Simulated assay, not measured.
Amino acid sequence: MEGGGTRAQVFGTQTFGSGYPGISGRGVANRGFPFYFWPLSFGVGTGTGAYLRSDTEYGHADNTSRPGGVMTSASFQSNSTNGTVFRVLADTTTTQYLITDIFANCSGSLVSSAGATMPIAYNDNATDLPQPEQIVQYYRASSVALSLDGYNNIAIFLADGAPDIPLPSGIDTTLLDCLNQTIGLATPLIGGATSQWAAIPNNMGLLSLMLLGWFLAAFV
């Protein structure tokens, strides 16, 4: 299956393999392409984390056959005192689109301009950032991801169903929510999908989930 995914179906979760319309569970093997774009490729994962190894089916991050071009990342640093750094990981075309839209929507929370931020080629066989344990949200059938530097969600390497590690306190949640909503709104869609600028649900922000995680962690 290629294409047909809609704007309202773009949001996934923290799980690699989320964001596929009507499909749940870890991993991306043999799932088709509901948004045309291929899922991200990670070169890590053994044992219970083997589902992360998508390079055997979709090629490595530098596979030039990948729709939208090779995988690239872009970093976005908060202008708050803590200097939180988030990263977007996607194909080159998507990353370029998102850089422009993120700075248009979130510039008040960022330290640099769109002209100073460029896509950086991603090497899935090295320690390039982001690593899969740093991902806080997947989108568009796990073909786009948002990560947080310093976050270490070891639950992705444990048995399916292990609870995600709560996001750290003190990060710039205003920027996080702006990035999350902008990516959901601006991520390019192809084929039967609705317009790039179609409305998205306004209840998909990460902030409420983060606050719940912090609250529970404080009493454990």
Rank of each mutant, 00 (worst) to 15 (best):
S78E: 03
S41L: 00
A126Y: 10
T93R: 12
L110W: 10
A145N: 09
S75C: 03
G19T: 04
Y151Q: 07
D172R: 00
Q9F: 05
W214R: 15
P130K: 04
G47M: 07
E2F: 05
S112F: 05
G25P: 06
Y51S: 10
R140A: 03
T81A: 14
S208F: 02
G69W: 04
Q14L: 10
F86D: 07
A162G: 02
S73G: 11
M204P: 00
T187G: 02
F157V: 01
S73Y: 07
L189A: 02
G49H: 07
G32R: 08
C106E: 05
D91K: 03
I171D: 04
D124S: 12
G4E: 12
L146Q: 08
G19H: 01
S65M: 11
L146E: 06
D55G: 01
G213Y: 07
F37D: 15
S208D: 12
D101I: 01
G59P: 04
P34L: 08
T95W: 01
S112G: 02
V220M: 07
W214D: 12
G4M: 11
S169K: 14
A218S: 15
V70T: 15
L158S: 13
F42E: 01
I99F: 04
L211T: 07
A159H: 08
D149I: 04
F103E: 05
D62K: 09
D62V: 02
T95N: 04
T117D: 10
T93E: 14
G12W: 02
A159I: 08
D55T: 14
A217M: 13
G191A: 14
M71D: 03
C106F: 08
Q96C: 03
L211H: 02
F33G: 05
D101Y: 05
A217T: 08
N180T: 15
L146T: 01
N153T: 03
L129E: 06
G3M: 06
C178T: 11
L52C: 06
Y151S: 08
I23G: 01
T46C: 00
S143T: 09
I190N: 12
L176I: 12
L206A: 11
G45Y: 01
P166W: 06
N125R: 10
